[in-house]
Design a binder for these strands. Structure first.
Lengths: 100, 100
DNA sequence: TTATATTTGCCAATATTTGTCAAGACAATA
DNA sequence: TATTGTCTTGACAAATATTGGCAAATATAA
């Protein structure tokens, strides 16, 4: 299964009839990187998301969320206790939130 | 806030009146590493968990779950959309599960 | 104080990630 | 078939991150 992020990027790019080569050029990276990102072979660097969103006229927060979901998934994907760990992590996240 | 994993290790170790030095010796690593792990300064390597569980007479699955929760937390901790990303990741995890 | 335990900062070795290049696969079409 | 354009893949080096260990600093206890 490809990444949420990659699939969305490909969707956005193709709907605008943009070539990999063109998108890569706008982001100033090699074409192969975008290809791999869209196919889920590689993760984009977090810092590159805002520019990507701008170039694709997409919602930067949506892309950041999908990107983050992929990071989480990469960590837990082969783990037996993924769900349990997610619950534990969730508690900690929201505990922190309420303290502020 | 320290890690879930580290806090639990410290709890297990001190309850058994074991010194950092002793635990480190059993695991064949430097004392400072265990100190850092317990304080959340560092993550233990995943492969070291089973031996650690054995030495502390703890449930390996509990420790693995806490360890994994820390990994997830490390990824999302400063992210605005942590909760949204968790939800997206969660769907993917359980989608995968049901397919098998 | 002295002795012991823990913490911290730093370093070198190792591992991982990143971007580039070049070659290959694939489809459309001349 | 040969050509063209797009996309994919693997190998590689450079940059970055992680790891374990040492030694000094700090805490704790007697």
């Amino acid at each position: 299964m490809a990444t949420q992020f990659g699939e969305r990027i490909r969707e956005l790019r193709t709907k605008q009839n943009m070539l990999l080569r063109q998108l890569a050029s706008l982001l100033d990276v090699d074409t192969s990187i975008i290809s791999k990102v869209e196919r889920g072979d590689r993760q984009l660097k977090k810092e590159q998301i805002p520019l990507l969103a701008q170039v694709l006229k997409a919602d930067v927060e949506e892309l950041q969320t999908l990107w983050l979901a992929d990071q989480i998934y990469a960590v837990v994907k082969d783990e037996k206790f993924a769900n349990e760990a997610m619950q534990v992590a969730d508690k900690k996240i929201n505990f922190k939130k309420n303290k502020k």
